[in-house]
C-alpha cells in the first residue's frame, strides 16, 4: 500500500509525532510503502497512492495546489494534525489581513537596517486560512497538535485495515481523572493564579480548561501533565463550533447567587482573549472563521 505525506504550512510537529512512533514505525513500514514525505524523506514526486496524509495549514497558493494534487492522486485522504483538520494555530492569522501580516513580519519586526528583497517566485499568502476539507473531500481526520503518536498509530492502522475511521464521540472530560462536581464559577483565574488543587476539575476552580468542549482521544495528556486542556483535538462529534460552545458553557457556569458572583460585565472582562482561548486551534473552521472588515484596523 502506497502512502504519501504532504506538508503544507506547518511546524513539522506532526511529522515528528509520526517519527515518535519509534519502533512502532517499523511495524507501520512493514505494511506500507512510504513513497513521498517531505521533511522525512528525499523524493520530490509521487504517483497515484492509496493513502495521502496532509499536515500543516492551507496558508499559501502553493498549499492549495498541493491539496488539489493530493486529492487527485490519492484514494484515501487523511488530514493529520489540527492545522490541516481545523486550520490550527495558524488559523488565528484570520484575525489579520495578509497585507498586515507581511507588514508586521517584514517591516515592523525586522532589525533596524534590514532590507527587504522582493522575490517574485515565493508562494503568495491566501487571503484566509481554511481547513483542508473546505477545499476537497477527505476520508479521515486525525486531530491533535500534534496528535499523540499512539493515537496516530491506531487511526492509521484502522485505515490500513480498510475500515472507516472511528473517532471518539465524547469530550476530554471522559478521559480526565480529576474529580468533577457541579460547576459554579465565582471568578475566572489565569493559569498560575492562586493555589491549584490538582485532584479537582480545573474549570470548577475558575481556570479555563477546554476539555469540556474538546473531542476525546488524547487520554487527557495535558491535564495529566498538570496543565489545562487547550482544545487541540477540536470540537466534539456533534458540535460544529467548539469556541461557541465553550463561550456558552463558561457563561452558563458563572454562579448567580453566591456573594462573590460576577455580573455579566465582570465575566466578560475577566475572560481575557476570548478568541485566542476559545478558538486557539479551530478559528479557521469556526462559524465566523475570520475577522470582519468593519473592525478596527489591525
Amino acid at each position: 500500500m502506497k502512502v504519501v505525506f504532504e506538508s503544507l504550512s506547518g511546524c513539522a510537529g506532526c511529522e515528528i509525532a509520526v517519527l515518535d512512533l519509534h519502533e512502532g514505525l517499523l511495524d507501520l513500514l512493514k505494511r506500507v510503502e512510504l513513497t513521498y514525505a517531505p521533511i522525512i524523506l528525499d523524493p520530490r514526486t509521487f504517483d497515484r497512492s492509496e493513502i495521502g496524509i496532509i499536515t500543516g495549514s492551507v496558508r499559501t497558493d502553493e498549499d492549495v495546489e498541493k491539496v488539489k494534487a493530493l486529492r487527485e492522486k490519492c484514494t484515501t485522504l487523511v488530514t493529520l494534525g489540527s492545522c490541516s483538520c481545523f486550520g490550527g494555530v495558524p488559523g488565528l492569522a484570520n484575525l489579520f489581513s495578509p497585507e498586515s501580516i507581511v507588514k508586521q513580519s517584514h517591516e515592523v519586526n525586522v532589525a533596524p537596517g534590514s532590507k527587504i528583497v522582493e522575490k517574485k517566485d515565493i508562494p503568495r499568502l491566501e487571503h484566509w486560512i481554511v481547513p483542508v476539507d473546505d477545499l476537497v473531500n477527505i476520508e479521515a481526520k486525525i486531530p491533535g497538535c500534534p496528535p499523540p503518536p499512539k493515537f496516530i498509530a491506531e487511526q492509521l492502522s484502522t485505515l490500513l485495515n480498510g475500515g472507516s475511521q472511528r473517532l471518539s464521540k465524547k469530550t476530554v472530560c471522559d478521559e480526565c481523572d480529576l474529580q468533577k462536581e457541579i460547576k459554579r464559577i465565582d471568578k475566572i483565574r489565569r493559569w498560575g493564579e492562586g493555589k491549584t488543587d490538582f485532584s479537582k476539575c480545573l474549570l470548577e476552580q475558575g481556570y479555563i480548561c477546554l476539555g469540556i468542549a474538546t473531542r476525546a482521544g488524547c487520554e487527557s495528556r495535558c491535564i495529566k501533565a498538570g496543565t489545562p486542556c487547550r482544545g487541540c483535538f477540536g470540537p466534539a462529534e456533534k458540535v460544529k463550533d467548539a469556541g461557541a460552545k465553550l463561550i456558552s458553557a463558561i457563561a452558563s457556569t458563572a454562579s448567580l447567587d453566591s456573594p462573590e458572583a460576577m455580573n455579566p460585565q465582570q465575566l466578560a472582562e475577566s475572560f481575557i482573549d476570548v478568541v485566542g482561548t476559545a478558538y486557539r486551534f479551530t478559528l479557521a473552521s469556526s462559524i465566523i472563521r475570520k475577522k470582519a472588515s468593519e473592525g478596527a484596523a489591525n
Partner: peptide, 15 residues
Amino acid sequence: IDEDVCSGCKVCIDL
C-alpha cells in the same frame, strides 16, 4: 441526553 456523547462534565447539572 445521548449517553454515548455525554462525558460527565456536569456543566448542565446546576443549570
